[in-house]
C-alpha cells in the first residue's frame, strides 16, 4: 500500500450546532491522500453531521475545513463537489424518479470528459453487475441493497478526490455488506481514491481502514491506525461488543 503523507482533508476545531444543541464540539481530524479513514461511533455521535458539514449540507459554526490548499468551509454543496468531494449520504437517497443510468449520470454532472465518464460507467457496472441488469429501471424500484450499490456507484461517478461514505452497511444483508466493503477497498487501491468512511459497524470499518477515529457525543475520544484502535480495550467493549 502506497501511503503518501500529505493530507487531503484537514478539519480543524469544527463546531456544528442544530439550534442550541451542539452536534460537533470542536473536533479536528485529518485524512491523508490515498488512505481509507474511518469514523466510528454510536448512533447520534455526530458522524453524519461531520460528513454533512464537509459536503456543505449544513453550516459550520466555527472551525475550518480545507481540501488540499482550498478552504471549503461553508461553501454551497455544488461548489464543494467541484473541488472533488463526493458524498454518498446516509439512507442512500438515490433519485427514485430517475433510472439507474440517469442516477449514475447525475453523479458525473460536473464532468465534461464524456469519454472518461462512459468508461467509469462501465467500471461501476463491472463492480456492481446487478446495476447493469437494472439499468433502465427507476431507482425507486430497486431493493435496499441495490440502492446502496447505486449510491456508492453514483458517488464514484464524480471521480472524486475524496469520497465520503455514510453508513454503507445500513439496512442491508451481511453478504451484500461484504461485497460493498470489498468494492470500497478496490476503489481505494485501484483508483487511488481517498475515502472517509462513517460506520456503525466498527468491526468491518476498522478491518479495511488505514486510520480510524472514534467519535462520542461530538468529541473525538480516540484516534490512531485502525489496527491499534481495534485492539483498544475501550473500543472493544463499546463498539466491537466483545
Amino acid at each position: 500500500m502506497s501511503q503518501l503523507s500529505e493530507s487531503m482533508l484537514e478539519v480543524t476545531s469544527l463546531e456544528v450546532k442544530y439550534g442550541a444543541i451542539a452536534a460537533l464540539r470542536g473536533i479536528s481530524l485529518s485524512v491523508k491522500t490515498g488512505q481509507i479513514v474511518t469514523m466510528i461511533g454510536a448512533n447520534g455521535a455526530g458522524k453524519s453531521t461531520l460528513l454533512r458539514a464537509i459536503s456543505g449540507l449544513i453550516r459550520v459554526c466555527s472551525g475550518n475545513i480545507s481540501l488540499g490548499d482550498a478552504d471549503i468551509t461553508n461553501l454551497p454543496p455544488h461548489r464543494i463537489v467541484g473541488f472533488g468531494v463526493s458524498h454518498a449520504p446516509e439512507g442512500r437517497m438515490i433519485f427514485a424518479n430517475l433510472t439507474v443510468r440517469e442516477n449514475l449520470e447525475m453523479g458525473a454532472y460536473l464532468r465534461r470528459d464524456s469519454d472518461a465518464v462512459a468508461g467509469d460507467l462501465d467500471r461501476v457496472f463491472l463492480l456492481f453487475p446487478r446495476l447493469k441488469e437494472r439499468i433502465n429501471q427507476q431507482g425507486g424500484t430497486l431493493s435496499g441493497g441495490e440502492q446502496q450499490m447505486l449510491a456508492v456507484g453514483r458517488a464514484m461517478m464524480a471521480r472524486p478526490k475524496l469520497l465520503l461514505l455514510d453508513e454503507p452497511s445500513l439496512g442491508i444483508g451481511p453478504i451484500l455488506v461484504k461485497a460493498i466493503f470489498q468494492t470500497i477497498v478496490e476503489i481505494n487501491r485501484e483508483l487511488g481514491m481517498t475515502i472517509l468512511l462513517v460506520e456503525q459497524n466498527a468491526h468491518l470499518a476498522l478491518k479495511i481502514a488505514h486510520y480510524g477515529y472514534v467519535l462520542e457525543t461530538g468529541n473525538i475520544i480516540l484516534e490512531g491506525p485502525s489496527s491499534e484502535i481495534a485492539c483498544n480495550e475501550l473500543v472493544r467493549k463499546a463498539y466491537l461488543s466483545e
Partner: peptide, 24 residues
C-alpha cells in the same frame, strides 16, 4: 437532456441534487 435530468433530480430532493454538483 442533462439539464432536464437535473430538473427531475432537483424535483426529487434539493439537497441530494446539490451533492451531485447541481446548482439548484
Amino acid at each position: 437532456t442533462k439539464m432536464g435530468t437535473a430538473m427531475r433530480a432537483v424535483s426529487f430532493d434539493h439537497r441530494v441534487a446539490s451533492l451531485m454538483g447541481i446548482n439548484i
